[in-house]
Design a protein around this nucleic acid. Structure first.
Lengths: 191, 191
DNA sequence: TTTCAAGCATGCACGCTTGATTGTTTCTCC
DNA sequence: GGAGAAACAATCAAGCGTGCATGCTTGAAA
């Protein structure tokens, strides 16, 4: 899809994508109808249809948007004094926000939709790789030592699990306790 | 809902519930229409409607069914010689099967459906509690020691995260490596 | 055996979403 | 300033899922 020429168009397009992400996080995949997204974006359904002829077009773009935003939030989020505890906490936050909720909806929808799956899987592996690299760097981990790579991955997987637990109820208090304890264990392992 | 009088009825009802779980795991929440579930169960749509007048009735029963099945699979799954590695592996399996996939669909659907959420949350907390108790017992962990409780929870959360990663692609090889490494760490922590 | 209720099957109407078509406004470039 | 394209708005037909209403079949009790 070519880059639009008018500024107004770019704005509308951007608003549609952001609205799509918001809707994904709040009303889920099937709840995010074109009408709902358009209304949230403050544009008419016809306008949405102009930019994205089909619903599939809209959400393939939205999936890309979610992936890049998640990577961006990684890049800008490295704490100044990266103690292990702070890094672990940051990883926890990464799987607790709106973007994670939106991505979760996409994963689950993609699990039973081959078309969508082919869109989501490559982007998700890319995000996962970036997150891993970020974590290794932030933790100052030496991946050449056996087991270190797996423990870093375990940290990310645990954060994902905590994020999932945080989906239905506010699990932040428990998450903090678990992450704090994990940070101590992780620090000993990495030392 | 009263217990049906005829055996045939109980069988049909059971088949519908099992089909509902299968469909949840395979085609997702919105894909699991009454027609699809009924066809999979080998009964007509009318029969399904007789047992569960509305779709909501069907899936409220299915949610209960999933919860009890998950608890049952816990109870029957304790390894004979519970080394830490075996227990961790068993926990990993727990979040890799069909029941987990079905439950995942329910969680995500419940995230944007207040009605469903009220059904799912209490059952899920119960399953979580059972799983935690089972893990503590199987690991022989001493929860009176500070931090032990959190580490056990972290193990379960990590398994949940790994299960999520296993949703779109076959992640079993990576999971085995991560779990094996974590088992070693966990053993040292619990000692 | 008869009878009646439970179990089961079928068809229809309603609401919703999507994608296409057509008409209207706004911007850009000549 | 005007022509033409891009952006936006409104309406229509088609498909799908649900719920209801209506018959038919089976089994158990009198």
């Amino acid at each position: 899809m070519a880059e639009p020429r008018q500024d107004r168009s770019r704005v509308t397009r951007q608003r549609l994508l952001e609205a799509a992400v918001d809707c994904l996080a709040e009303v889920g995949w099937t709840g995010s109808t074109v009408s709902v997204v358009a209304e949230r974006a403050g544009v008419s359904r016809g306008a949405a249809q102009h930019h994205f002829p089909t619903r599939e077009d809209l959400f393939t773009a939205a999936i890309d948007y979610v992936a890049t935003e998640r990577v961006n939030s990684l890049r800008s989020g490295l704490p100044a004094a990266p103690t292990v505890a702070l890094v672990v906490e940051a990883i926890g936050e990464m799987y607790a926000g709106k973007l994670f909720k939106a991505a979760l909806q996409l994963w689950v929808a993609a699990a039973s939709d081959g078309q969508l799956r082919d869109q989501v899987v490559p982007l998700e592996t890319r995000v996962g790789r970036e997150a891993h690299r970020w974590a290794v760097e932030a933790l100052g981990a030496d991946e050449s030592r056996p087991g270190v790579r797996e423990v870093v991955q375990a940290t990310l997987d645990m954060a994902r699990g905590l994020g999932l637990a945080n989906l239905l109820t506010d699990d932040s208090k428990r998450r903090s306790r678990v992450l704090a304890e994990w940070a101590e264990v992780l620090e000993r392992v990495l030392a």
